[in-house]
Design a protein around this nucleic acid. Structure first.
Lengths: 162, 162
DNA sequence: ATACATGCAAACATTTTGCTTTGGC
DNA sequence: GCCAAAGCAAAATGTTTGCATGTAT
């Protein structure tokens, strides 16, 4: 579970989650995964989530989330990440965070060092040009990036000043 | 310790490490820390390091690093980060990485998903403009950012193709 | 003299693996 | 039927904390 209590997922605005799920399941099958209940659960949860989720968030958790075993979810996450269907984020929490990786969708995040809240930024990411340069000059393959902003949210700033 | 064996620190190019250490010790004293051997060791190690180091790297490690206890180093790292003398990076390793935080110095990193090698990028960071915008519009205080590029280094690309 | 820092050891949280059983193909 | 996936349980890894002692101020 994540360090800070989650502000229960306000419904996500991703359109047509059903269709996305079908597409992701197809991509997963292409990658060699079997069409199993746990896989469908994990993908569905990640598609519906507005914010990055931890392994603890996804498996055996409070709400209506998956009741699949942690080890199962863990192994699914590893495979899904390897095949590029999801992405892992190294936020400053102890646990790793995961997000669905939809073609053409990319987000950066703004995280509060006080309360741990995670906000998705809907701004144009200014890093793509540099990413291309690095791809050319570094010799690295399959490059992507991760960008997070950290700071103190208004609430925490206030209580911090007190 | 970090996931992948370290390619023993090639000497770092930071100029005047002695002076930097003195300055950092002064900053640390200003922050209320006592002038102790362990503190000096930790700061010195981080100043001399070319790349981010884990708690395991810093404490009780192989080379000429600090012989201070892990818990001691851990508590120092926490305090130093709180007071802004060092920064913690959430790279995709299980362990947290730390770097010295020198005024005016900022680096982004390029990390290999295969072997875990970490390269410091010496390019102009394209994020500062966006950072200012976010500072104005979000209401967050004390904003900073973390940017990493991930990919497969030439060696790992080669063995991956095989 | 006092309060903070240290060292040792134990507790924690999260990830990772082994192995047997189940179920998709 | 075969091989991948699930479930359960245990090991591994890295972090954090408690407490008695040492030490900078």
């Amino acid at each position: 579970m994540s360090k800070h209590h989650h502000h229960h997922h306000e419904g996500c605005q991703r359109p047509e989650p059903e269709r996305l799920l079908t597409e992701c399941m197809a991509r997963a099958r292409d990658a060699g995964l079997r069409r199993t209940k746990a896989l469908q659960d994990v993908l569905s949860i990640l598609i519906h989530a507005c914010q990055p989720l931890t392994l603890g968030d996804i498996s055996g958790s409070e709400d209506l989330l998956s009741d699949a075993d942690r080890a199962t979810v863990y192994r699914l996450l590893v495979k899904l990440e390897q095949h590029g269907l999801i992405r892992r984020l190294g936020l400053h929490d102890r646990a790793a965070y995961y997000i669905i990786n939809l073609p053409g969708e990319h987000h950066d995040y703004l995280i509060c060092n006080g309360c741990g809240r995670i906000e998705r930024l809907d701004v144009a990411c200014p890093v793509h040009a540099l990413e291309k340069t690095i791809a050319k000059t570094s010799g690295y393959q399959r490059i992507y990036h991760e960008l997070e902003f950290y700071g103190l949210c208004p609430d925490c700033s206030a209580s911090n000043a007190a």
